[in-house]
Design a protein around this nucleic acid. Structure first.
Lengths: 107, 107
DNA sequence: TGGTTATTTGGCAAAATAGCCAATAATATG
DNA sequence: CATATTATTGGCTATTTTGCCAAATAACCA
């Protein structure tokens, strides 16, 4: 694999890795319904604020979400809505796996 | 976040995590052109066979690829082609980030 | 059967990730 | 200004992931 190809796939993996966490997927899902402040997301997820802030930082640094500061609050929104397309495919993988499991049980 | 929601997003993250590695993305990309044996993928990627085999195991265990044994070789193929849709979105994130970088340089 | 090739598995050390607490920064408000 | 609120950052430990080597497994062939 030449260097250029390697860089390409590393860049792609970096973006996907930024999404590869339950809390971060939940955040993306929530932001698809409109902007949310850190406190709202923290409330919903139920981890420490610092933890949520770090998750937001990962999504932000990878250009998946954007933010706007208003007063003491920071509001995040989805910058690249196409990531929502991931969900339907992931869902089909999950149900396909479940069907496979059922088939195996029949043996 | 209730338990059901938590489980849902954990299941989704597990699938996405399985894809979140340069070598594994490369494998998915290659398999989109047709089945490949472990030796071919190993040759292309240039890591140890055992490393490639473990990557394949992760994709396989998450239902993203399937395999068929023929003789001493094992041929892998893409089980859920919709994961290829990820690439175009990821690409748009990357180019959007690049444009953002350019804007920042102008300041 | 013995040897060869292809692949997987076990085990280990290094690196990356996650999540908490404490400390800091920024802004609003009395 | 002092204090409260909201969010980010630093630092730490625990956990997970990665990738190599060595060993085991499987199928083919002489």
């Amino acid at each position: 694999m030449d260097k250029k190809t390697k860089n390409l796939f590393e860049a792609r993996a970096k973006i996907i890795k930024a999404l590869a966490h339950p809390a971060r997927l939940f955040i993306v899902d929530q932001l698809s319904h409109g902007e949310k402040c850190v406190c709202e997301l923290t409330e919903m997820i139920g981890s420490d604020v610092s933890t949520i802030s770090k998750h937001l930082g990962i999504l932000r640094n990878n250009g998946i979400i954007s933010y706007e500061k208003r007063g003491t609050q920071v509001f995040y929104s989805l910058r690249v809505p196409c990531v929502l397309n991931f969900f339907s495919c992931v869902e089909s993988v999950i149900s396909s796996n479940a069907r496979e499991q059922l088939l195996l049980l029949k043996d």
